[in-house]
């Protein structure tokens, strides 16, 4: 067995696929991380990410899969779910080695796994679309902080751009330390550097005058729509798992 070490990017993954075929490797294991001399693996190879090679693999994949199929693969990889590299590699190899399109062959374990990963990523994306809470700042722009389980920020751009086209907004992933900012024309990726603990205080200090009032109105609304005689906490927590509460105005 050969262990391939790659940089974790999508191009890196595709280059790894290229190397598998170029060196006619059979049983391989994909590993994300730095190349360390003398590390634990018996047989190892470093994948040097290369756009031309990656491009050739992508082209081959596009012949075998539908456009949607390629997008789904990309989304599954983008999510950075730990320990899934080998399933993604398995999926790509299976797609390339088979004559017909295998996207719907759910009997195959790689296809099924990728479909599960896509489902997990989608769910996280939908949750973010639902649970993001913007706060209005004095300069008229809106700010939201999130800590999603997977890296879904890039997948959120389209939704928020088409919904909030007439206001400036920023969504910041605190865990991965980057955000997206929309300035009424374009969106761009940004990083902010503020000190770990002053973060929340800084933002509260920058609120518009009526931000506090609307937050309170929303909390009040949330309380008054509850019907006590129907209480079902199990269902409630299933819909909004506790780890999301921290950024939900109505649950703080």
């Amino acid at each position: 067995m050969t262990t391939l070490i790659y940089d974790g990017t999508f191009e890196g993954l595709l280059t790894a696929v290229f190397d598998v075929y170029a060196h006619k490797l059979d049983v391989v294991k994909l590993h994300q991380g730095e190349w360390l001399e003398g590390a634990l693996f018996d047989e190892k190879m470093q994948v040097i990410t290369d756009e031309t090679r990656a491009g050739r693999v992508l082209k081959a994949l596009k012949l075998k899969l539908s456009t949607l199929g390629v997008q789904r693969l990309y989304a599954a990889h983008l999510a950075e779910i730990p320990g899934e590299d080998n399933n993604l590699l398995g999926f790509i190899r299976y797609a390339i080695d088979t004559d017909e399109n295998i996207e719907e062959d759910y009997g195959n374990r790689y296809v099924m796994r990728v479909s599960e990963m896509v489902r997990m990523v989608r769910r996280e994306k939908h949750r973010m679309e639902a649970f993001i809470r913007f706060q209005k700042l004095r300069d008229g722009s809106f700010y939201a902080a999130i800590e999603p389980d997977f890296n879904v920020l890039p997948l959120l751009i389209k939704h928020f751009r088409s919904r909030y086209a007439d206001m400036k907004w920023m969504i910041y992933d605190l865990r991965r330390k980057y955000g997206i900012y929309y300035d009424l024309h374009d969106t761009q990726f940004i990083t902010l550097d503020f000190a770990e603990n002053s973060r929340q205080a800084d933002i509260v200090a920058a609120y518009t005058e009526d931000e506090g009032m609307y937050q309170n109105l929303w909390k009040n609304y949330f309380k008054s729509v509850n019907i006590t005689s129907r209480k079902n906490t199990k269902l409630h927590v299933r819909h909004i798992p506790k780890r999301y509460w921290k950024h939900l105005t109505e649950k703080i």
Binding site: H126, E129, A130, F131, S162, R163, Y164, A165, D166, M167, L184, F222, V225, N226, I227, R230, K231, N232, T233, K234, L235, H236, R238, H239, I240, L248, E250
Partner: peptide, 21 residues
């Protein structure tokens, strides 16, 4: 470039009895 759109419907929160808000 107005405000908002309406398509699939999102539940932005859930009441304590588990209904969609």
């Amino acid at each position: 470039k107005g405000l908002g759109n309406a398509s699939n419907g999102i539940c932005h929160s859930y009441t304590e009895d588990g209904r969609c808000v």
